[in-house]
Amino acid sequence: MKTIKSPEELRRLRNEILGRVHPKGDGTNEKVLVRVHSGTSGLASGANEIFDFITLELEKRNIDAVVIRTGDMGYCFAEPTIEVTLPGRKPVVFGNVDRHKADEIIEKYIKGGELLEGILPVNYQTIE
């Protein structure tokens, strides 16, 4: 852990991080990126269980992936929600994810790129 001593160092660090991880998950990621939305409403609907399940199952099924916890996106009506970004593809958000659905997402979408019911498309624009 280093201390940032100037604005230039901040920018250098940013570029370095961007080379390592892809926080925007825009498809330039090399590994499958799974975001489990774990704010209060996500957690209240079982996001922790889904996080554990996905982490464990991806490992069991030998899929090289990064699974992270984030805050909520505001889709309280469909929690728990997870976002999956396959390399070279746009992120896809799935709603109402239980263990069964998570299993289906791994088998069908992550392994085969097949879309499933329950997708929440990006219904907003955002700033850079």
């Binding site: 925007k24 975001r35 992270i68 984030t70 909520d72 996106m73 219904n123 624009q125 955002t126 700033i127």
Partner: peptide
């Protein structure tokens, strides 16, 4: 209809990792 300025990073970054 939606434009996210305040919620720009919500659900995108890991809030417990400053690097993100």
């Amino acid at each position: 209809k939606q434009l996210r300025i305040v919620l720009r990073n919500c659900g995108i970054i890991d809030p417990e990792n400053i690097e993100e």
